[in-house]
């Protein structure tokens, strides 16, 4: 009985702590959503509160208008274009390259694989400047190409590595049986590997979506015109535009910018958690 009580007490302490700390963890996010419908005065007076005195949905349409002459419809459209193409490019090119490394024997494969692995941890700063000069020289600055084209050229090396590991786990007998049945090398990839690769591809697609949607440095460097800006750059400029007076609409647009991530998180949480647990992706 005494022992049971002790256990009950421990459980209570556990749940109180974990709940309180958890609340603190998501407080900034709850605060953002709550404040996005607060009247301007309440964002700073009564700042802690998560309950607005009146719900000001107007912040959303006001924010949507944007600033200057560009609205958030343009920013969201641009982000959607860039992100969609990057995800398609990454999934397509990373999976076929991974197939090549995992299944086909060609000269210098070991060396090339080592090169691939060496680039996984390469700091972006090393290639940032010469890449910029390269894209500047071929006239791609102020277009989406510098953001999209690299995704079609293998995407992030980490994804290729992840898919190689996954393909290595698929029994080779399946390939061999398909070859006996008259499948070509590409046929094996298309009919055998790709369907089995689906869970790993979902993980790759999710992470490349999140990283691209969130990407700030790339658009900051490459996109100059307002009508090409992505949501991240739009928000940054919105934050600086009015010298910080338009907080309600700014928070409304901030909240809106995270909606795609929250939707993906809600539906594909399992893949995200698995992806992190098995590979250490962020």
């Amino acid at each position: 009985m005494n022992k049971n009580n002790q256990r009950l007490l421990r459980d209570v302490i556990y749940y109180v702590f974990v709940t309180a700390f958890g609340f603190l963890m998501i407080y900034p996010i709850l605060w953002m959503f709550a404040s996005s419908v607060k009247p301007a005065t309440e964002i700073f007076n009564n700042a802690i509160s998560l309950i607005p005195s009146v719900v000001m949905w107007e912040n959303y349409p006001i924010g949507w208008q944007g600033f200057g002459r560009t609205g958030f419809d343009v920013f969201f459209r641009n982000s959607a274009i860039v992100t969609t193409l990057v995800v398609i490019g990454t999934v397509f090119s990373a999976s076929i390259v991974a197939y090549g490394f995992a299944r086909i024997n060609f000269k210098f494969k070991k060396i090339l694989f080592a090169c691939l692995m060496a680039t996984v941890m390469l700091p972006v700063q090393i290639t940032l400047i010469p890449q910029y000069i390269l894209f500047h020289n071929i006239g791609w600055v102020n277009t989406f190409y510098p953001l999209i084209v690299p995704a079609f050229l293998g995407g992030a090396p980490f994804f290729v590595f992840l898919l190689i590991q996954f393909i290595r786990g698929i029994p080779r007998e399946l390939d061999e049986a398909a070859i006996v049945d008259g499948c070509s090398t590409i046929g094996v990839f298309w009919r055998i590997i790709l369907p089995l690769l689906k869970p790993a591809l979902v993980t790759v697609a999710l992470f490349s979506f999140m990283w691209t949607w969130d990407d700030f440095l790339g658009p900051l460097i490459y996109l100059n015109s307002a009508n090409l800006h992505t949501v991240t750059i739009g928000l940054r400029n919105f934050m600086d535009a009015d010298g910080g007076t338009n907080w309600g609409p700014l928070l409304a647009m901030s909240s809106l910018s995270l909606v795609p991530q929250f939707i993906l998180f809600a539906f594909f949480q399992k893949y995200l958690v698995q992806g992190i647990a098995t590979t250490g992706l962020k």
Binding site: T119, I126, T127
Partner: peptide
């Protein structure tokens, strides 16, 4: 060999043009 290189060519082009080339330039 040819098939292998054809299949990894997207990465190979990216590696040469966006990693090794830039690193030398840098």
């Amino acid at each position: 060999n040819l098939t292998g290189y054809a299949i990894i060519s997207p990465w190979l082009i990216g590696f040469l043009a966006l990693v090794i080339g830039p690193m030398i330039a840098s």
